[in-house]
Amino acid sequence: MTISVKKVSLQRTTRDQIFLPAILEGLLTTARHFFKNTFTPGHGDVETIRYGEPGVDVKDYYPERFRGVHRLMHREDGSVRCVACMCCSTVCPARCIYIEAEDRRDDAEKAPRSFVIDELKCVVCGFCVEACPCDAIRMDTREHWIPTETRAEAVLGKVELMSRGEQSVAVQGGLGASYREQAPKADPRFTHDPR
């Protein structure tokens, strides 16, 4: 295992001086790409993601960890999992999450009266997901925020955020004793588990 030093250099040759051979070599290289891409199905080496094409689901292109549009998770009864603890809005470097709390009048006590995310301000760092202590907010929709005509359309409220949601893996007050067996380490739903 050694780290050594090497000199790199490039010597000019007569062949380089007369322009044409190198130019021809270059032309052949580009022409090879041209013909391959033009005449093979699926455009050869072109690996462009074809957003907006009918029949193309861009979700297929995104990896599992892709950080996309936010969503709010549900409780068993379908209400919002979030309890407005403000961790996400605190940790958000872009300050794009605005939450107002209200009294739920059940054992969960607290819920967001309004939960607003300005997707235009969001820098997609994923810290809100990491900061959420309730598995209430996630970014695993594999949905890219698409441009909108007005700014207001990019401001998502609680209803829109919940419409992408599903039931959360966390429960109010925890799973109780022996939770470590109930929530196995390898469960992918417990996202962001580095251990």
Binding site: F34, N37, V46
Partner: peptide, 14 residues
Amino acid sequence: KQSAMMQDRLGPNM
């Protein structure tokens, strides 16, 4: 289009 094909891009297509 040709440059796109030479450069492994799609080029204009929409």
